[in-house]
Amino acid sequence: MNHNLTNIFQGMILIILSPFFMGTLNKIKALMRGYKGPSVLQVYYDLSKLSKKDTIRSGRSSFVTEYGPVMALSVAVTCSFMIPVIFVGSKNSLGNLILIVFLLGGIKLADALIGLDSSSTFGGMGTSRELFLSMLAEPVMFLIIMYLYFQYGTLNIFEITLNNLHMSTTTAGDILAFVSFFIVLIVENARLPIDNPETHLELTMIHEAMVLDLSGRDLLLIELASMIKFAIFITMIVNIFIPFGISTSFAIPLIIEAAGLFLAKVFAVLFVIAMIEVLIAKSRLFRAPDLIAVSFSLIIAAISFSRFID
């Protein structure tokens, strides 16, 4: 039996939950700083407010600004259908990791083109920074995929999850690869040591600078796409490295247990991200390669340990 329909269903759950994850992250950060903070549903309210607003485009912008947000969101949605969330079947045709990484690169392409399109100063600057960082982060991502291939013998993310589920021991390589993937998550989603998502100061922003010219529905689509991308990365790190409890059959209690465990694991990852964001200040842009070099070094260590050292 082919599980593509199930994958689409659980991908839709992920898409619906992705603003909730962002709201939860903001709430945890607010609680850690000692104030009450907006409700976890605030991100949904913001998105619905954006959907009611008029869309104004710069007179200089071309068809790229018109279709770019649609492309970003459609790529993100396609990508979310390709990863396991709470259920993993035995036979899967979707879910090649290299394809997922390329599709996630599509969001970046759309963002970069939109940033350049309206020929504003900040757009170009933000695009340059974003591509500078992703140029460094992408090789590390492919090294992580290489490690996963060496370790589990497949490139399909569903089969990696299944194989990891049946593996009883955790090796040093797994832990090193987990930390490495976590750093890539932070860099790719422009979280704190790289980019502060809370400010709109022109000297520091990366992601915000690219979408500065958008408004209304366009901004809604781009924001939703980047939230889905964040949710996809968290789901990937959870289901690749700590997949225990994920359901392998359609029994209702198993599915409920898997959903509960999935939410708990996601909250744990969000808690760690929030703790880093509260504790650490943003570092200079040219210090970012150092962080990625740590990630590179860790994944090289993981590959060496899994391949050459028993």
Partner: peptide
Amino acid sequence: GYYSFILSSVYIIIIAVFLG
């Protein structure tokens, strides 16, 4: 810093190849 991190990964490769 950057080169030190890269250098440490080179050390790990050398160790893995020669002492693996």
